[in-house]
Design a protein around this nucleic acid. Structure first.
Ligand code: MN
Ligand code: MN
Ligand code: ZN
Ligand code: ZN
Lengths: 146, 146
DNA sequence: AATAAAATTGAAATTAATACAAAATTAAAT
DNA sequence: ATTTAATTTTGTATTAATTTCAATTTTATT
């Protein structure tokens, strides 16, 4: 993991979101900022257990629930059992490759928000989740076929 | 539940989707066609257990998995534990009211498919899920406030 | 240093979904 | 019609992500 943020920066990030900085919270935030792979709670746990041997899974859930409440993360409910977490809370779409399992971001134009014109609902958030095959996997498949 | 379909119609519906009609499959299909509320497997089970006292939950899962495989239903992965099923497999968006919990359909313009222009992914399906407050709940809240 | 508040842990409970073999039903073959 | 094979349904056990919650540890306050 690239070390891109100083402890002070991470602490400020949390404070700005009305979260008291603790060791675990800083580590989880650092992981999320440096690993933008839409990790699951377990992904985060498996990585951090190396750094904090006494770490419990519950602490990861506690931290992520708090982050969610304070708007530090958003969740991705893709068609899989585990919930994923995203440190990027700005409007953007997600694409899951059904071959390699990776989840990619893609830009979403404001056109999509035309939906919001509807008088029926007050929309607070929108998720746009696409499924298919990514470029890399497509190329691999084409190679094998020829 | 309004009886809108004859047994023969239900059988044909299944046959057209390459599914052998059985009692349970017909009943599940009938439920899905007459109750367009995006039910969970348990919703379907709780209703049908009254009609088929020997019914098992596994049969509901088996049936829904088969329906999914044959394209009779699509699934909704909203930010909740249970998966929901939709007999409407045409492109449309979903709105979940965070107050009453109901899931509504809304039309999706083809604009959204501009996303598909991307050279990075081959998109096979798109889910558009919105969250917020529905009209009914909004009105109720406004009344209480005044 | 003593006390209170907050954060973390660990074990147990919950629960949607899955696995799978046995039983029951339906279809095909004799 | 009876036997045999194929399919469907059931029931039990298992899995695994998440939740609950009381006990412990850490941090902040007096
Ligand atoms: Mn993202
Ligand atoms: Mn729908
Ligand atoms: Zn891929
Ligand atoms: Zn509502």
């Amino acid at each position: 993991m690239k070390m891109t943020y100083t402890i002070e920066q991470l602490k400020d990030y949390l404070k700005k979101h009305d979260i008291k900085p603790s060791t675990i919270r800083i580590k989880v935030l650092e992981y999320l900022l440096n690993n933008r792979i839409h990790p699951t709670a377990d992904d985060i746990y498996q990585y951090l257990i190396n750094e904090i041997p006494t770490l419990s899974k519950t602490s990861i859930y506690n931290t992520l629930d708090l982050f969610l409440e304070k708007g530090v993360v958003s969740t991705l409910s893709l068609k899989e059992k585990e919930l994923r977490y995203d440190i990027n809370t700005y409007l953007h779409g997600h694409f899951k490759c059904e071959v390699c399992g990776k989840v990619y971001d893609f830009p979403v134009t404001y056109k999509i928000l035309d939906v919001n014109e509807s008088k029926e609902f007050t929309i607070k958030s929108i998720d746009i989740n696409a499924y298919g095959i990514c470029k890399k996997c497509n190329e691999k498949i084409n190679k094998e076929e020829k």
